[in-house]
Each structure stands twice: as C-alpha cells, then as structure tokens.
Design a protein around this nucleic acid. Structure first.
Lengths: 238, 238
DNA sequence: CGTCGGTCTGTGGTCTGACCATACAGTCCG
DNA sequence: CGGACTGTATGGTCAGACCACAGACCGACG
C-alpha cells in the first residue's frame, strides 16, 4: 500500500482521498466488494479531519462507486460497489427536474439505445440460455394482480436483459439510467391516467413480439418493434 | 416558500434537504443561477446540523446541480448551475477505473451517439448560423502550435456543436460525458505514443469532411465519416 | 452440552462549536 | 478623489463528542 500521507498537490482536503481511491481502483488495489478503511483510519492516514474524509466518501457514494453501512462485521463499513445506473439516473432526474433536460429527449435517447442494442444483439454471439431471464420476467409480468410500479420494474429488467445481449455495458447502463431518471414521473402519470388495465395487455403482446424477433435474430424487426413499443407507451401515458 | 421544518418522513437528516431542493427545482421556485440560502440558514430551517446540510449540498454538487464558492457578495455562496456532462463524466470515469465499464464500450457508445446525432441533424431544422461555432472551432484547430490536450478540447467542442444540431440535449450531454470519462486516458495515450504530428493532420481533414457533409444535409455520409473518424482515431491511439 | 441473552466493540450518522480563507461592501484616511 | 483598511457573510476545515446499529463474544441458564 502506498503512502497516502502527502497532500502537497491538493488544495481541497478531500481531493487527496478521492484521488487516492480512484488510483487504487485503477491499479487494482481496490476491487469490487473490498472494504475501505474506516473513516477515522483514513482521516489519520491523510492527516485530515474525519469530516473531510466523509466528504470524499459521500462523493463516491453519489457516483455509485461505494456504499456505506453502519454496524460491525464484514458487511458493515464502506465497501466498493458498482451501481452506475442508479447514480446516473439520480443525476439525470435532478436535471430533468431543473428543466435542463426535457423528458421528450430522455425518451428519444432511450429509443436510440434500445433500437441500437437489439440491432446489435441479433449479430452478437450469445447463448440461448441468456434469454431465460427475459422469459422468466415476461412470465412474471403475466400476473394480473401486479400493481403498475411492480410491472414497470419487471419491464425495466426485461429491457436491460435484452440489451445486455448486445454486449455493451455502457449502453445498457445508460439505457437503464434513462429509465430510472423518469421512473417516478412515469409511475405518477400511470397512476393518474388510469386505464392501466387497457395498457398492460398491449405491453405484454409487444414484449412477446420483441422477444420472438430477438430469438429469430431478426435485428431489423426487433428494433422496429421496440421503437413502436416505447413510443406507443409514452404517447399513451404522458 | 413552503414549510421545510418537518422531517417526519425522513430517516436520514440530509434527505430532507435533498428532497426539498429537488421539489423546489421541479416547481420552479429554484431556477438556474439562483442562490440557495446559506448553509447555516438551511440548518436552522430544517432543524438539522450544518454538517448534514453540507452532506446534501455535496451530493447536489457531485451531480452537477449546484456549485459552491466561498466569499461574500452575489457571486459567492451556493448557486444553481447545470453541468450534467461533467457530473456524468466523472462518475463514468470512476467506473472505468474500477473496470466496471470497458473503454471499448465507451468508444462504441460514442460512435452510436455521434452517428445518430449527425443522421438526425440532417433532417432537423436549424439556422445555417448554428454552424458558425463549428467553423470557428475548426479554424482554431488549424493552429499548428497547439498542444494535443488543447486540440482535443477543441475537438470535443466541435463534436458537441455538431451533435447539438440534432436537437436532443440528452444525447449531446451523454456524448460529451463519454468523451470526458476517458479524456485523461486518451491524452496520456497520445502523449506516450508520439506521432501526434501525423495524427493531427488526418483529424483536420476528417473534420472538414464531416462539416461539409452536414452542411450538405447528407446525414448518411456525415454518419459514415464520423464513424470512420472516431474509430480510426481510437484504433490509432489506444 | 447447547443455546439464549446481554455486553462489548467498531462502524457510519449526526451534532456542536469553533476557526480559517475568501471575496465583496462599505468606510476611513491621505 | 482614490486607494487602503476594516467589517461581514460565505463556504471549507477541524476537533471532539454522542448516537444507532450490527455483528462478535461470552457468560448464565435450561
């Protein structure tokens, strides 16, 4: 472990911690699931106060890089996680709230990514077993008593599972974050518009059609269907 | 101004501040450029400590929603900004460092967004004057004495300016953040590979060609050229 | 002997109060 | 009139303390 005691090249106190952790991630000293030293220990090592250490860790937590838990034992403390979707989604949600990013553009970007993913999934190499989860999710969505937020949660997982076939983690992550950014917005709209019973049946049919197209490795059809699926839903709901 | 004193529905102390500010952004009570109350005032209003207020503001700062400055006067304090590109870029950079997101996928996602943008820019409506900035950037990049990081910075602005023609703020933002996520990585690679003098000439030619295609509203050609441009550069550099 | 309970310990979460560096606003003095 | 000085409010940092929590440990009891 290197000597993180020097902070000569840093104005802000917490920057030293941030840069050291980023460097540790890059070098492999810190891997997914590893525990960070305690906040008091880090403060000691860097010669700064615990408040500044918390400042740095807070930033990492917002970016979805670490997760803090209270208590003791192996599951407690600050551990390295990897949740970029939630982090990007939260940030995007705030910028939608401040009207910097229009909901319309979010939906359009999602269509771009979903169509791209399915078009590439048709040409990529993957085991047929990778579709098992997608099928399982569709079956779960057949439950008639499912409340709409639960349905849309499964729906999101279905889309992520399909897009994962394209083999691009960045696209899958961003797609998921776009959905997360407007999730509460959409759920509220669904709750107030009613007519959910009418909508959900069509969604199920569309999902089956998309899955079939992917199974047949027909990228053109899968892209077209998923575009119609998304655009129809948002036109109907928002 | 509503009653932000109650925190009955919140476990974490800082969550109350976060939710209140998000709500204020959504309702329009807080707009771009507005100043937040001071940290001490907020702590008073919410009945929590200043440390917890700072926790919430820190989260907003990481997400690119606010910016804090010391001092006094109109330019000091915490003001509402809107810098989603930098925020998303930093988060993505960390996840690249932790090897959760491969650089290859970042580049591939960028190609997807750039080609999409230029294809849509050809069909969108925009004033010819909107290309003035793109031309100005190309002229600035003709400076032979430009260090490579300065060139790539202008390069990035050029791509953002072109993609803005498609009229989708989310795509432009994400495109920019992808570039930002691997900026230092690319700059380092350029510095160590040498051969910059050979590369930069080709880049200039490619840029001119892309701009011409956009001016001619030939979306298919612009997309193809930008794809070749990006893929050539990364194949050559990384 | 085995198990249940309390206790210990270490973690992050919060609070308090203080001091510092900064940047502007007003004032005072030359 | 103008420049230097002082005042003031801001975020940034620090120190020390206490709390809630969760697992580890260990003793007492069935």
């Amino acid at each position: 472990m290197p000597q993180p005691i020097s902070r000569t090249a840093s104005d802000r106190a917490h920057d030293a911690v941030l840069r050291h952790i980023e460097e540790s991630l890059r070098s492999g000293d810190l891997k997914l699931g590893d525990r960070l030293p305690g906040e008091r220990a880090l403060a000691d090592q860097f010669g700064i106060s615990r408040a500044s250490v918390r400042d740095a860790i807070r930033a990492l937590e917002v970016m979805g890089v670490v997760k803090s838990s209270t208590g003791s034992g192996p599951n407690a403390g600050t551990i390295v996680v990897s949740d970029p979707s939630a982090a990007l989604g939260s940030a995007l949600r705030l910028h939608v709230a401040s009207q910097r990013l229009p909901v319309r553009d979010i939906v359009e970007a999602r269509v771009m990514m979903e169509t791209w993913s399915l078009a590439h999934a048709a040409e990529a190499s993957w085991e047929p077993g990778q579709l098992d989860e997608a099928r399982r999710l569709l079956d779960a969505m057949d439950d008639g008593g499912l409340p709409s937020p639960a349905f849309t949660a499964l729906d999101a997982q279905f889309h992520v599972a399909l897009s994962a076939l394209a083999g691009n983690a960045v696209v899958s992550t961003m797609m998921d974050s776009l959905r997360e950014a407007i999730r509460t917005y959409v759920d509220d709209a669904v709750a107030h518009r009613g007519a959910w019973a009418d909508i959900v049946g069509t969604l199920r049919e569309q999902h089956r059609g998309i899955l079939e197209a992917v199974e047949a490795r027909d990228g053109e059809r899968a892209s077209r269907l998923v575009r119609e699926h998304i655009e129809w839903f948002y036109a109907r709901t928002l």
